[in-house]
Design a protein around this nucleic acid. Structure first.
Lengths: 133, 133
DNA sequence: ACGGAAATGAGAATCATTGTCAACCCGCGG
DNA sequence: CCGCGGGTTGACAATGATTCTCATTTCCGT
């Protein structure tokens, strides 16, 4: 080991990794590896599915991504960001409304701290039947 | 439809269903369908894996079970302690704490109503690093 | 430019979960 | 008590996301 200090074992930069990082930067929503893979290809970025998984795993390992599981077990990723919002989804027509909630933000924050948790991050999804359905 | 009032569509009781319910009642920990299946068989309760999944799904549908996903995507179930609550999960060790929040409950309720949504249901997951990690 | 190591990609392998469908069991009517 | 109809079961196939394998390609220091 020469100069390279320990810690974040940065991967060797490649076109694919940049593409994955860029794609993640273009949205605030959670995306699954499969969606990301499809999107990249659609945008003219040839990339293998396995590579997408590897890049996501690497980014998540360094703490640059939030990872969580959807109800059907698919893993979804999102770039760690400060500003975010939540979704109100109609279970019939799928209409989605973005909602911000300073109330919950602080609630989550305090509940977590109360239990000694740090680096808190949360996900909230509200599902209901919208007015027109 | 004769007299049968709507609501909880209780399934016809069978040995297998009782076994699953009993097994769930014996522990407060989260168990995966696979574990439950193995345990039941070990206890001399012949039961099919598909049936275990069906029973769990049925119980969860009626709201008698809490369901969440482990980091590797396996679904784990636990008998609902009492009422509605959410989870605070440690991203390192996976420790889980149940938290109740009248605050969020009403917040979600009002935000949804504000947008004309009915039959609201929500999911909240708070992830952080717990004190001991 | 060269060599070695890390990264990639195509496809196979894995594994939890769901679907299929014939055999089975439960409760009700006769 | 016996038989019937339909919900339930179980063995196995099918699905789908994720991981593994390994030959090939790309990057980086020399």
């Amino acid at each position: 080991m020469t100069g390279q200090s320990a810690g974040a074992p940065t991967r060797r930069p490649t076109r694919q990794q940049l593409a994955v990082a860029a794609a993640l930067g273009q949205t605030e929503d959670f995306v699954s590896a499969q969606q990301l893979h499809a999107r990249l290809r659609g945008d003219g970025n040839p990339i293998g599915l396995a590579t997408v998984y590897r890049c996501l795993a690497a980014l998540a390992a360094v703490g640059r991504l939030d990872v969580l599981r959807t109800d059907d077990g698919e893993a979804v990723y999102r770039q760690c960001s400060t500003d975010h919002h939540h979704h109100l989804v109609c279970r019939i027509c799928g209409r989605t409304v973005e909602v911000a909630g300073p109330t919950v933000e602080s609630w989550a924050e305090s509940v977590a701290r109360e239990h000694g948790f740090r680096d808190v991050r949360h996900t909230i999804e509200i599902v209901g039947t919208c007015a027109t359905c």
